[in-house]
Design a protein around this nucleic acid. Structure first.
Lengths: 104, 104
DNA sequence: TTGACATATCGATAAATCTAGATATACAAT
DNA sequence: ATTGTATATCTAGATTTATCGATATGTCAA
């Protein structure tokens, strides 16, 4: 884990919002998973377009935000067809909270 | 609390180090408190010069780092004579860990 | 009150980040 | 094969941050 990359990823209001929204995807992204066929389950995953729409930044911006957050460890993703679904990496975030409590 | 200011303050290796060092001031700053008269107790406080020496950045840089960290809430300070002593704001940091656990 | 010292603030430049639009890639549907 | 759609990557200008040296401020000691 690279704490500095994590903190940088968290140093931006939109990225922080995305992380919050993804705590309750069904609440913040009503049409969540609309493209996912039943047999593919990726619980909590939301596609880039839906996130972009809510975040109100350009497509390239949201894409690089998501990539950055994933590289930092905060998010994980799968690609399914033409869509990429992102969701929180809860395991990592739990570790992070522990790190924060003991190391900061 | 302004999470973004906190995360920005934590997004730098030197500042992160300072925060770590101040967890154990007597260990990292052997001459700590040398200028403080006995009757003034500011437990854990370390003066700017000592921090600068250890951090190996310019005086102006360390001063602005410390100011930034204080504005974010991570540090607190008192001035005594010509010295300013900084120490961790443990209460704030505890709140921060809670925030992190519940909000991130 | 002058000189020395600790710290803070200012001003400048280099480096990094932000963010968008344009373009590329990958897949789906016709 | 071609077209349309979703996402990723590239490029570039604007903004922000990093960091220093110079200067200002405040305090102590002679």
């Amino acid at each position: 884990m690279e704490p500095i990359d994590v903190f940088k990823a968290l140093s931006n209001e939109t990225r922080l919002n995305i992380l919050e929204w993804l705590k309750e995807p069904e609440k913040h992204f009503p049409k969540q998973g609309a493209h996912l066929p039943k047999e593919v389950s990726y619980k909590g995953g939301v596609c880039v377009g839906d996130i972009q729409e809510k975040a109100k930044v350009s497509q390239s911006t949201v894409s690089s935000y998501l990539n950055m957050m994933q590289r930092a460890g905060l998010l994980e993703s799968i690609r399914h067809g033409q869509w990429t679904y992102y969701r929180r990496n809860e395991e990592f975030i739990l570790q992070l909270a522990k790190y924060f409590k003991t190391e900061i």
